[in-house]
């Protein structure tokens, strides 16, 4: 018995060390965000900053709050629109028996895997003709398109858990597919849908490449603002650290909510809990 206690103790220490490896870099940046530029790069390092020093945040936010707002708008809208498109499709692919449904599902999935960089210029030209360059609308459309395949597959994996008898019983009672979708499938998959929504939210929130192509001034997102700070002029590290911290908050918080379903989501529903 004693041996196993010791073993557990050693393993727990190891696990803590591992956790530290994956936590420390972020923590260092978080500490950095409360330091002046000089303290950020002081040698020997300033280990614990003065957490009342919030100048970096106030300066950075006063310069960039509009980009933060853009990011929030784009992220929320594309999450909602993605769900509006994907949930019915996922439902259909799960419950409608029609020829070619596997093929269709595979086709949808494969669009998820194509690299966005290959679509950027054609979309740029398309939006130019539609006069939608540098608009939040264009970003929402593109993020939605890139998120739909993911949302369809993962939602489908949750819909599959609904007992098929339940669906068939309603069909026999004469309920329309719309009714079944809204009144049975959605309420029964609430948890799953939340998972999908969180993932889509984070994907949109994190996106950089497409925004680099499509935004000029008005519609710049927060990641674009951050990356602009690091171009070859002068890096104002206080700003960068504060912005990085703010940009990281939603993914970190949401990961806590995802916990249970994170494997399932990251593997497009292939791994069940």
């Amino acid at each position: 018995m004693k041996a196993s206690v010791r073993k557990n103790f050693i393993l727990l220490i190891l696990a803590t060390l591992i956790t530290f490896v994956f936590l420390a870099p972020n923590l260092w940046m978080l500490f950095g965000s409360f330091k002046s530029q000089n303290a950020m790069f002081a040698l020997p390092p300033v280990w614990i900053p003065d957490f009342t020093y919030i100048k970096n945040f106030t300066i950075m936010l006063s310069e960039s709050y509009m980009y933060l707002i853009n990011s929030i708008i784009v992220t929320i809208c594309s999450t909602i629109v993605s769900l509006i498109f994907s949930l019915p499709t996922a439902f259909g692919l799960t419950f409608f028996k029609f020829k070619g449904r596997y093929f269709l599902a595979d086709w949808i999935l494969s669009t998820r895997m194509l690299p966005p960089v290959a679509a950027a210029v054609p979309l740029f030209i398309l939006f130019k003709y539609l006069n939608l360059l540098d608009s939040l609308f264009a970003l929402i459309i593109v993020y939605t398109a890139f998120n739909i395949p993911f949302a369809v597959w993962v939602s489908a994996s949750f819909f599959k858990k609904i007992p098929i008898d339940l669906i068939e019983a309603s069909r026999i009672e004469g309920a329309s597919w719309f009714h079944i979708f809204l009144k049975i499938a959605i309420p029964l998959s609430k948890g799953g849908i939340a998972t999908v929504a969180i993932f889509v939210f984070i994907f949109s929130w994190n996106e950089l490449l497409i925004a680099l192509f499509f935004t000029v001034s008005e519609s710049r997102t927060f990641p674009i603002f951050i990356s602009a700070q690091v171009s070859q002029a002068q890096i104002i590290w206080g700003n960068v650290a504060a912005a990085t911290v703010i940009q990281s908050i939603p993914p970190i918080l949401l990961t806590i909510f995802l916990q249970k379903n994170i494997v399932s989501g990251l593997t497009l529903g292939a791994v069940k809990n």
Binding site: K128, L133, V216, S217, E218, A228, S231, A233
Partner: peptide
């Protein structure tokens, strides 16, 4: 509004070649 060197070039030329008058 200030930009870094490469970023400025990219933004300016892309925008104005697409008839954008933001700046």
């Amino acid at each position: 509004e200030g930009f870094g060197y490469d970023g400025l070039h990219e933004k300016q030329i892309v925008a104005c070649s697409q008839n954008d008058g933001s700046y």
